[in-house]
Amino acid sequence: MNTGFLTIYWRDMIRFFRFKTLLISSLVQPALWMAFFGIAMSANFNRLTSEIPSIPGVPSVDYLTYMAAGVIAMTTLFTSLFGGIVLLFDKNWGLMREIFASPLPRNHIIFGIALSGMTKTFIQAFIIMVFAIFLGAAFFAGFTAAETILSIFGILLFVGVFSLGFLFLSAAISISLESPEGLQGIITLLTMPIFFASNALYPIDAFPPVLQAISIVNPLSHLVSGIRYFAIGDNFQAIGIHYTATSMDIAFSFLLLILFAALMFALAWWRFRKATVT
């Protein structure tokens, strides 16, 4: 088997751990989201929803626990969308010529970058989980040790497949563009609707129909559903809304993320075959 993608992965990991400011900021930033946005919003939401009568017999979770899943998803989204930017820099600084003139098959460049991006999202997801629990999020409440490990595995599986999709997209955009500013613009344009038309920070039940339709096909919503299923459970209430999920629902979400990743890979592959670097 050609393991050329590991070469790309190896180099990107060297760079990740070498730039200490980048490394530390990428690890601290999601924790800060939890610490500031999470605590502030959960104080508000808990006050607002304290009047709502709780549904009897359904375990209730507070807002911090509810949004922690959203923060994991959001961080994964941002990191993945920016994960391909190294390709744009490599192209602009001429480094891509060495790779394109080598025998390495081009799809291995995509795989290598996607793998390193996925590794980064795993590290971040793990840190957020630990920090969220430290702040008081009721993740894995009442789970046995075996169930907890299985759930973490499930979360990483969802995070991994989701990040692959957006890393492929990021690679496709990066290899097609000339300027980092352009990439920045496109990514900002993409993150707004993806992030806010999702169930990451609030329920989608009260959305107008169009927004609701968007959020239902939004991969981010499916990632968040997956994380909540594994971290909180298949039957809980938060902010006055009753959440249930069958394993079929979760399998469907997972398949949707796989489909999205496959489509984005096809897009990236097409862009890479078209790309000329001189």
Binding site: T7, W10, R15, R18, F19, G94, R97, S102, P103, L104
Partner: peptide, 30 residues
């Protein structure tokens, strides 16, 4: 590609890799 070596017109070295890593990366690519 397997038969040639190239020194490009402009410097094409990753600023943040060491000399050894530059050569290691190249050897791995091939």
């Amino acid at each position: 590609r397997n038969s040639i070596g190239i020194v490009f017109q402009d410097v094409t070295l990753d600023r943040d890799m060491t000399c050894r890593e530059i050569l290691e990366f190249h050897g791995r690519l091939y």
